[in-house]
């Protein structure tokens, strides 16, 4: 399990990185950010990139900033960085909670938010967050910058709008209004494993009923997405168990579940019902959430 040979590039500016990428893109040159997915693929010789463009020496990519009602997350921001308060509650609380479910601490110190989005694993927690909250994807190449909305970004299992020679340099998440409630729930075989199913819900209540709802499901379909039918089932109703059940049942009914050797469609569908309901209950239960692990919060 030794990676195949590659040429290593270590640009120190983004422009330099994009210039190199433009040259090597045709040969399947790849960006190396955290490497927590790419390097195992290379070790297993499932990926043979002949060029690696290591962006770790470009400090400007390691920043988050709040701007125009959005949290912008650069291409080198690690999972663990998002467990710290970012000064944008309640969104940063949501991110901290979700981050604590991603793999394990030594992976979170390296792996990046944008790397997960670019890899677009169906069970990626960050893809679920991006899909549910409606992220904007800033994609650059040597030729210029374009911005892609979430509706166009995800294009299938591990397939995105990022083209050859392009790089996801930043993702922007809309901030959550202060009165937003949110809940996340995932089920995995072991601690830190990819989830068999997960859900993220954000709610705003108006006059005792749900005024606005976002319900996203991940790990169950080709890529995470919002389930409009489930959201519609909730809006205008009191945020109680019956309403949550109705929304969850709706989500389970409309998804197109992935199947594999261990997991059939029925299991995934039923699990979606469970995780949606539990995410909704979690939203009501911990209105003010805190990170599950605080270690990263202090780093």
């Amino acid at each position: 399990m030794k990676p195949a040979p590659f040429k290593y590039h270590r640009p120190t500016t983004l422009d330099e990185a994009l210039a190199i990428l433009a040259e090597v893109a045709e040969e399947d040159g790849r960006i190396l950010a955290g490497g927590q997915t790419l390097v195992p693929m290379m070790a297993l010789r499932l990926a043979y990139p002949p060029h690696l463009v290591d962006i770790n020496a470009i400090p400007e990519l390691a920043r988050t900033r709040v701007e125009d009602g959005r949290l912008a997350i650069g291409a080198l921001v690690r999972h663990a960085d998002l467990q710290a308060p970012l000064g944008c509650p309640p969104l940063d609380g949501l991110l901290a909670e979700v981050a604590s479910h991603i793999a394990h601490y030594p992976i979170r110190t390296r792996g990046t938010f944008c790397g997960s989005l670019a890899n677009a694993d169906p069970a990626s927690e960050w893809c679920l967050v991006a899909a549910t909250l409606g992220a904007e994807f800033v994609i650059r190449s040597a030729d210029g910058t374009r911005s892609v909305g979430v509706e166009d970004y995800f294009q299938g299992v591990m397939a995105t709008a990022i083209g050859p020679g392009e790089m996801l340099v930043e993702a922007r998440l809309p901030l959550l209004p202060a009165d937003s409630l949110w809940g996340f729930y995932e089920f995995s075989r072991r601690a830190g494993d990819f989830a068999l199913g997960m859900a993220l819900a954000t709610l705003r209540l108006e006059g005792g009923v749900v005024g606005e709802a976002r319900i996203g499901v991940g790990g169950a379909e080709e890529h995470p997405r919002r389930i409009a039918e489930a959201e519609a089932a909730l809006v205008g109703r009191a945020p109680d168990e019956a309403a949550f059940r109705a929304a969850a049942a709706k989500a389970a009914a409309v998804i197109d579940p992935l199947e594999d050797h261990a997991t059939d469609g029925t299991y995934r569908r039923e699990l979606v019902e469970t995780v949606v309901r539990r995410a909704l209950s979690a939203a009501m239960a911990h209105r003010q959430a805190r990170p599950r692990t605080e270690i990263e919060a202090r780093s």
Partner: peptide, 11 residues
């Protein structure tokens, strides 16, 4: 792989 062959962890 160890992502598919699931050895129990401390949790």
């Amino acid at each position: 792989t160890f992502a598919d062959y699931l050895i129990p962890t401390a949790s």
